[in-house]
Amino acid sequence: MGTLVIVDDASFMRGALRHIAETAGHDVVGEAGDGEEAIALCRTLKPDAVTLDILMPGMDGLDTLEALKAEWPEARVIMVSALDHEEKRREAMGLGAVGFIRKPFHPKDVTDELERVIGRP
């Protein structure tokens, strides 16, 4: 079973991702609504993977990814965003993201990506 921290400013979206991940057998150990909270949570919990929204108020997902990787280079981060153009993917991957889920997503999009990044539960 993989542990997961979910980062999204929309509680609705965090709930959806939590439901999908837990139904698939993963252990959601934390949720954060912004970048600063996400970094603090990951510092403590060291999850197997982090799902990270890109468009968030204040510190956005790419800034959060950059800060998180600077502090914890082994972090496995899956970006989740409605911004799906190739340039945005490349930028995220260049900063160290290991996956990308496009919104709106089907549950299988999420479970496939989680399985690819942290393995089958």
């Binding site: 929309a10 509680s11 609705f12 911004l83 799906d84």
Partner: peptide, 24 residues
């Protein structure tokens, strides 16, 4: 507040896809 949260995300998803189309 729950509805606002949802509506913001709805706009986020809709306009996020739109911005990708604009970029293309």
């Amino acid at each position: 507040g729950v509805q606002l949260d949802f509506l913001r995300e709805l706009m986020n998803v809709g306009s996020g896809n739109a911005v990708s189309a604009l970029a293309r």
